[in-house]
């Protein structure tokens, strides 16, 4: 059971790969698909590993990804349980 989930705004991504490289549980991988600007956005390959720590959201220079924690199926936003 995953403890968190990530949302990716594909059209805003510039494909720098920071989120894929620095995800502590290796949830993400670069996709081979293109967005409309021609960049390769990341996609979720291991959703069950996501802890919702939002480190991807902190690294993203384009505000294109963010993680959130799941608690009993309800989202608690922004990596912080508040």
């Amino acid at each position: 059971m995953a403890r968190g989930f990530v949302t990716i705004l594909i059209e805003r991504c510039k494909g720098c790969g920071f989120c894929v490289e620095f995800c502590p549980t290796k949830v993400l991988a670069m996709s081979s698909a293109f967005n409309s600007k021609g960049y390769h956005p990341p996609h979720v390959v291991a959703p069950e590993k996501c802890s919702g720590c939002d480190l991807c959201g902190m690294f993203c220079p384009d505000f294109a990804i963010f993680g959130w924690k799941l608690r009993n199926g309800k989202a608690v936003g922004g990596g912080r349980e508040s």
């Binding site: 705004l9 510039k14 959201g57 963010f66 936003g77 922004g78």
Partner: peptide, 26 residues
């Protein structure tokens, strides 16, 4: 695995977005 009902209450936007002029992004 993620159950579909887990995703119902996804936050609508990135937590930093209210503090940015999103009309100017990317």
């Amino acid at each position: 695995m993620i159950e579909t009902e887990d995703l119902v209450e996804a936050p609508p936007q990135n937590p930093v977005e209210p503090y940015l002029r999103t009309d100017r992004l990317p």
